[in-house]
């Protein structure tokens, strides 16, 4: 009987297992090998030992890209999560026409990156853009957004919050799952909205917050498409360095892509990928470890 179950299990998981072997395990091994080699698609592999990893330690641009990436991880993650949670809270209110609001809130997150980058490039245009024009009406001079190294990353965070619909919808689902009875008994005790939010809502949805936190961290560690688009789009054509003003948009993944596909230093790129892998694993582990203190799993 057991053997039969094992066979069935194997059979059901076989598509995934084949995919896992071909598209995950094998490439992981290969990229580990590449990371110790000088290699590009025009040349064959030649072993260089730890040179690629030494390069990572020495190259200033790697340092810059790590700084930029951590900036996003540290600031963008909480901003998108708070934005998502706040909008979910609003969408969970009992008012008429909620489905219209839900669509409006969610739609930005499904706008393809290419289109949203384009729109934001113009929304943030320093002279004729939407935001600065509105600020102008209030007699405030807006910043140069995507042209000013101080403001480029805040611009991206703003875009991230705008497109936080994916996070929002899962929070919304979680909020709807919180048992009504909890709120009712709290009301009897005379708790206000804030009290209810802090002492009932947050603990009840803390597993989801953890899930979202981990997913967002991963997304921002791998941050690529928006920055790629905005850094390579300028008024006077493509910018091959893809780094933005004063390299303020040079994120880890962008540098990795550039090393691999612009400068064809696949060894550097593979080593960078492995370092990213280790950092992600470490941070995720750390988050899970500390999460025990603040995540409460319902008594189900």
């Amino acid at each position: 009987m057991h053997r039969k179950a094992n066979m069935t299990g194997l059979l059901f998981s076989s598509p995934f297992l084949i995919g896992f072997l071909l598209f995950t395990l094998f490439p992981i091994g290969a990229s580990l090998v590449y990371s110790f080699c000088d290699f590009n698609l025009f040349k064959s592999l030649s072993w260089v030992g730890l040179d690629n990893y030494k390069w990572i330690l020495q190259e200033k641009e790697v340092g810059k890209s790590i700084f930029n990436t951590l900036y996003m991880v540290v600031f963008a993650t909480p901003v998108t999560i708070v934005a998502g949670l706040l909008s979910a809270q609003l969408l969970n209110l009992k008012v008429k026409g909620q489905s219209v609001f839900r669509t409006l809130f969610y739609v930005p997150s499904i706008v393809p990156v290419i289109a949203s980058s384009l729109v934001w490039m113009w929304v943030l245009n320093p002279k004729s853009g939407l935001i600065n024009s509105v600020l102008q009406l209030l007699h405030i001079r807006g910043p140069n957004w995507l042209l000013d190294p101080v403001w480029t990353k805040p611009s991206l965070i703003l875009m991230g919050a705008w497109g936080s619909g994916g996070i929002m919808i899962i929070f919304l689902a979680a909020l709807q799952d919180v048992p009504k009875s909890l709120y009712e008994s709290a009301e009897i005790d005379g708790a206000g909205s804030l009290r209810k939010f802090v002492s009932i809502t947050l603990p009840s949805i803390s597993p989801i917050i953890l899930f979202q936190l981990v997913m967002s961290l991963i997304v921002y560690f791998q941050y690529f498409a928006q920055a790629f688009m905005l850094a390579s789009l300028t008024n006077s054509g493509a910018d091959q360095s893809m780094a933005g003003p004063e390299k303020s948009l040079l994120f880890y993944s962008i540098l990795l892509y550039r090393e691999a596909f612009v400068d064809f230093r696949m060894g550097h790129a593979s080593a960078m990928a492995w370092v990213l892998f280790l950092i992600t694993a470490l941070v995720t582990w750390f988050v899970f470890k500390t999460s025990k203190k603040w995540v409460t799993y319902g008594g189900e």
């Binding site: 598209f23 490439p27 992981i28 290969a30 590449y34 791998q222 993944s253 990795l256 696949m266």
Partner: peptide, 15 residues
């Protein structure tokens, strides 16, 4: 697979 950065597999797959 959820946690693995796609960059790790991107290059070998391309090759």
């Amino acid at each position: 697979t959820l946690l693995l950065p796609y960059q790790v597999t991107m290059l070998p797959l391309y090759v």
